[in-house]
Design a binder for these strands. Structure first.
Lengths: 203, 203
DNA sequence: TTTATTTTAAACAATTTTGTCGAACAAAAA
DNA sequence: TTTTTGTTCGACAAAATTGTTTAAAATAAA
C-alpha cells in the first residue's frame, strides 16, 4: 500500500495557519495559502475539500496547541511572584512558537461570534481564580495593592505580552530590525514585562 | 443649485470606518458597508468610485482624528506622573471615541506594508523622547526603575489601553455585559491602568 | 515492470464580489 | 411650466474567487 505524503498536507496546514491567523477567514484567499505553502491550488483541494474545512483544521490545531501550555501552567505550586513569572514565560513561549496567535485571537473575536461564545462559556477560569487566591494571601500580608483582581492581572499580562506580536511588522520597520534583532527585542521585553508587572501590583 | 445630501455620504463613511476597521481591506465586502449604512450598494459607488477610494478616505479620516489628540497631549508641561495619567486619559478617550481603532491599527500593520513604512518613518518620536526626558529627571531622584525607556513605557501603556478594545465582543460575552456595563468596565479599567503603570515604573 | 498514489497544469463551471448603466425620481433653478 | 441638477434603484456586465475535472507527469510501492 503506497504511503501518503504527510509532508505536503502538513505544509499546507502550516501555511494556512499563517495566512488565516494574519488575515482572518474572509480576508484570506486560498491562492495566498497555496503560494505560502509553495504548492498549486489544486493540491489544497486534494487534501482539504473546502476553505471552511481547512479553517476548521487550523482552528483545532491552534486551540489544541494552547492546552499543553495551560496544563503545564496550572500544575505547579508556587507563590504569587514566581507564578506570575511562570505565566509570562509560558505566554511568551507560546507566542514565540506561534507569533501569529495574538492576531488570530483578535480576528476570530471580531469575525466569529459563535467561536467567541464557545470560548467565553468553555474556557476555564482556573487562572484568574488561582491568581485571586494567591493575591488574597499577599493582600493579607499587605504586600500588594488592594484594587486588583485575578481578571485584571491576567488581562494586564496578556496585553503586555500580546501587543508586540500584533505589531511585529511595525516594530521591525521602525528601527530597521532584522529577524535576529527582533527575537532579541522580544527576549528582552519578556524580562521587562516581569519587572513591570511585579512592580505594578506591589503596594 | 440643488444641494448635495451630505448626510448619506457621511453615513457611508461612518459605516465604512466601522467595517474596514474590524475586517481590514481584503476582509470587508462593500455589501457589508452598504448594509451597515442602511443604503443600497449603488449609492456607495455614487459617492466613492471604488472600494480603494473609500478605504483611502477612511484611512485619512482615522489618522486625521489622531492628530488633535496628539497635539493636545504634547502641549502641556507637567511631571512624569501627571503626564502618564494624561497620556492614558488621552489614549482611552480616543478609543472611546473610536472603539475600533486598535483593531484598525492591527489590521493595517498586517495588511498594508506601505502604510506601515509611511507610519514608521513619519510618526513623531515626540512622545517616547519626552517620556525619556521626564524619566531621566525621576531616575536621578531615584524614584523610578533604571531599566525602562520611553519606548518601553509607551508600548506598555498602549498595550494596556488597546487590548480591552480588541476584545470587546469576548469581554461582553464572558460576563454577559450589556453596552452600559461595558462602558463602566472600561471606565474603571482606565483608572486601574493608571495605578498599575505608576506602580510599575516606581523603584 | 506494473500498479497505485501524489503532483501539476490547464481548462472549466459556479459563485461571489465589484463596478457600471440607464431609467425613474425629486428638488431647485430658469 | 420646463429645465437642470442631484439622488436613488434595479438590472446588468466584469472581474475575482472558489471549487471541479481532466490529462499528463512524477514518485513510490509491489
Amino acid at each position: 500500500m503506497p504511503k501518503i505524503d504527510h509532508n505536503t498536507k502538513e505544509k499546507i496546514l502550516i501555511a494556512a495557519e499563517k495566512v488565516f491567523h494574519r488575515s482572518g477567514f474572509k480576508g484570506t484567499r486560498t491562492t495566498a495559502i497555496a503560494e505560502e505553502a509553495g504548492i498549486s491550488r489544486t493540491m489544497l483541494h486534494y487534501y482539504y475539500s473546502t476553505k471552511e474545512d481547512l479553517f476548521q483544521e487550523v482552528l483545532n490545531k491552534t486551540l489544541g496547541a494552547v492546552i499543553p501550555h495551560l496544563s503545564r501552567l496550572l500544575g505547579q505550586e508556587m507563590d504569587l511572584e514566581h507564578w506570575i513569572c511562570h505565566i509570562i514565560d509560558t505566554m511568551c513561549g507560546l507566542f514565540e512558537e506561534k507569533p501569529t496567535f495574538p492576531n488570530f485571537v483578535a480576528n476570530i473575536i471580531n469575525e466569529s461570534p459563535d467561536v467567541v461564545m464557545m470560548l467565553a462559556t468553555n474556557v476555564q477560569d482556573d487562572i484568574p481564580s488561582k491568581l485571586d487566591a494567591l493575591l488574597a494571601v499577599e493582600k493579607q500580608k499587605g504586600t500588594v495593592i488592594e484594587n486588583i483582581t485575578g481578571e485584571d492581572l491576567i488581562l494586564n499580562i496578556y496585553s503586555l505580552c500580546a501587543v508586540p506580536y500584533l505589531g511585529i511588522p511595525y516594530i521591525k520597520a521602525k528601527e530597521n530590525r532584522n529577524d535576529e534583532q527582533m527575537l532579541e527585542f522580544l527576549k528582552q521585553r519578556r524580562e521587562k514585562i516581569k519587572v513591570f508587572v511585579l512592580h505594578g501590583i506591589r503596594k
